Amino acid sequence: MQRVNMIMAESPGLITICLLGYLLSAECTVFLDHENANKILNRPKRYNSGKLEEFVQGNLERECMEEKCSFEEAREVFENTERTTEFWKQYVDGDQCESNPCLNGGSCKDDINSYECWCPFGFEGKNCELDVTCNIKNGRCEQFCKNSADNKVVCSCTEGYRLAENQKSCEPAVPFPCGRVSVSQTSKLTRAETVFPDVDYVNSTEAETILDNITQSTQSFNDFTRVVGGEDAKPGQFPWQVVLNGKVDAFCGGSIVNEKWIVTAAHCVETGVKITVVAGEHNIEETEHTEQKRNVIRIIPHHNYNAAINKYNHDIALLELDEPLVLNSYVTPICIADKEYTNIFLKFGSGYVSGWGRVFHKGRSALVLQYLRVPLVDRATCLRSTKFTIYNNMFCAGFHEGGRDSCQGDSGGPHVTEVEGTSFLTGIISWGEECAMKGKYGIYTKVSRYVNWIKEKTKLT
């Protein structure tokens, strides 16, 4: 034993070699072989497995989906700052455009905790909710729209109204504003409101030439003092309507412009014939205590009207009353817009006519005020429907199939267009061939041609 100890002390290297040989010859039971080890760690190889990531292109799944990435790591994937920024906006807080917040056709661009709407022409605001041009839906104005110097929408209202708090709607500024039905039992019968379409306001006024200088022999019209197929109006439903009495009662109609003036057809009036105007009328054979009678003290036909040349060209006249009318729910003026808007309103496509005229061709006159909704007829169809001249200051309205029309005794009465609950004068009943005849239409004086003249002559002093 002493000898062994001496050998170990003198030859430590020998001992180490012996131990190493023993270990190498022993069977290893701690580690699995290569094949079995792979069965336990069965993990798919990654895209760049075996390579240094710093030297390969980034992978979106590896960089940002398996674990949260930084902007720089995302930049490695896209290799483009702009594309990385677009991805980053949604990656950080989701897609803010998912709810489609942009209105009126706006395009949404996502941002971090926010979004941006790219608005089409005519709109602005956070969600493109603000109209900035009158060309689109009248700028959301209830009545009139004008573009300011910086191309912003400025709404306005006709006389007797003021802008509401929203700067879009119009509200009454006087007790009985024009064009409004205020009798409670008839307010439910107000005709369907007309909503502004998209309009090209630059070209809204037709490029028409008034044929002022045409000389033409007097034409022989049949029954051209021209509501057939209409309905009984309720008291106060058309408070701007008046009836004219002269040699015979209810020979023509008219509309209240203001307390002192009536507008009617020029062919209705004769110099030297006494005319009485009755406002607030409903049943011409009954006294309903809503009527107001006034005498006409002055007749002003349009300066281009000449019955000797043509009885229905420039067929418009103004009547001055001896005493002002007292405005109330049964006696209310009709609204008159400017030339541009009167023309736009007419193009809405349908209007209402009213009167006490004959209820059928050569038949009896109506006792109760009649009204009828009539569609506008395109000019080409209008011209083809008659052998008589249709001037540019006239328009056609009615039904091709016949059966409904204005008729004798309705002449001078109103053709009105309702705009968001307020009625505007767009025409004056003038003439036609018979009444409600198939293929024939009622012919009306186009008020847009005469609004400046009306307003100039009827100013209240």
Rank of each mutant, 00 (worst) to 15 (best):
E281V: 14
T209P: 12
R83D: 15
T209N: 13
F399V: 13
K311H: 06
L32W: 12
P239R: 00
P235Q: 08
A26K: 02
G21I: 15
D150T: 10
V77L: 08
Y305W: 10
E86V: 15
K362Y: 06
V56N: 15
G229Q: 13
L24H: 03
G442V: 12
G351A: 10
T342N: 03
I443Y: 06
K137G: 14
L23V: 10
L52W: 06
T209F: 08
Y115W: 05
S406C: 09
F78Y: 14
N151I: 09
V4I: 11
L460W: 12
V242G: 00
S255Q: 02
T264D: 01
K260H: 06
V227P: 10
C102V: 00
G421K: 11
T426R: 00
G403I: 12
E129V: 02
R62C: 02
G272M: 08
H302T: 02
G272Y: 06
Y47F: 13
F144P: 00
L321E: 00
D322A: 07
K247A: 13
C170D: 00
S365H: 14
R384S: 09
C407F: 12
Q2N: 11
K168V: 08
G427N: 00
Y201M: 11
Q57E: 06
N328K: 01
A266V: 02
A317L: 02
F224D: 11
V92D: 15
I334V: 15
K68N: 15
W261N: 01
G253Y: 05
T85C: 04
T225S: 08
Y444D: 00
S169W: 06
E288Q: 07
I7Y: 08
A250H: 12
F345K: 01
S148G: 08
F144A: 00
L425I: 04
M6N: 10
L19G: 02
T84M: 04
T29A: 08
S448M: 03
I256N: 00
T381E: 09
A266L: 02
L32Y: 15
T85V: 07
C97V: 01
G105Q: 05
K45L: 14
E433R: 08
T209E: 12
V273I: 07
G427P: 01
E76Q: 15
N203G: 11
K137H: 14
S430G: 13
V92K: 15
E54P: 15
K188T: 06
K168F: 13
D232I: 13
D131F: 12
N295Q: 11
R226P: 08
E79A: 15
N80C: 04
G236C: 02
Y161G: 01
Y115R: 02
E82C: 03
T264Q: 00
I297T: 08
R46M: 13
I40T: 02
K126R: 10
Q185I: 11
E142A: 07
R384G: 11
N38G: 15
V183Y: 10
D223K: 09
G106N: 01
G439D: 06
F31P: 04
R140W: 08
G122M: 04
G58K: 14
Q96R: 08
D315I: 00
C102Q: 00
N42G: 06
W453L: 00
I299K: 09
F196V: 11
Y450D: 02
M6S: 11
G230H: 12
I7L: 10
Q96H: 09
E82R: 08
L60I: 15
C18P: 03
E270C: 08
E82W: 04
C382F: 03
C382N: 02
Y115D: 01
A250P: 08
F348P: 01
K274F: 05
D131L: 15
A397F: 02
R294N: 01
R449A: 15
C155G: 00
A173F: 09
L318T: 01
K274W: 04
V243Q: 07
F31M: 15
K438T: 13
F176V: 08
S350Q: 11
S99F: 05
I262W: 01
W261V: 02
L318P: 00
P120S: 11
R83A: 15
E10K: 15
I112H: 10
V277T: 03
I297A: 08
G253W: 08
A9N: 11
F71D: 15
D93C: 02
E10W: 14
V368H: 13
S182N: 09
E53I: 07
L20A: 04
K457T: 13
V195A: 14
H282I: 09
E286S: 10
T225K: 11
T276I: 09
V56S: 15
H303D: 09
R43K: 10
Q237Y: 10
Q167F: 11
E159R: 06
E420D: 14
K440R: 13
L383W: 13
W453R: 00
L372A: 14
D405A: 08
Q408R: 13
P175D: 06
F144R: 00
P44Q: 10
L130Q: 14
G402P: 09
L372Y: 12
T271C: 05
Y371E: 06
L319W: 02
N283H: 11
T381G: 04
D93T: 08
I309S: 07
V153Y: 04
D150L: 08
Q219N: 08
T186I: 13
G355Q: 13
I17L: 12
T16L: 14
N203I: 10
A9C: 13
H400T: 14
G179C: 02
T218I: 09
A279Y: 00
A317K: 00
N452D: 15
G402F: 15
A337H: 01
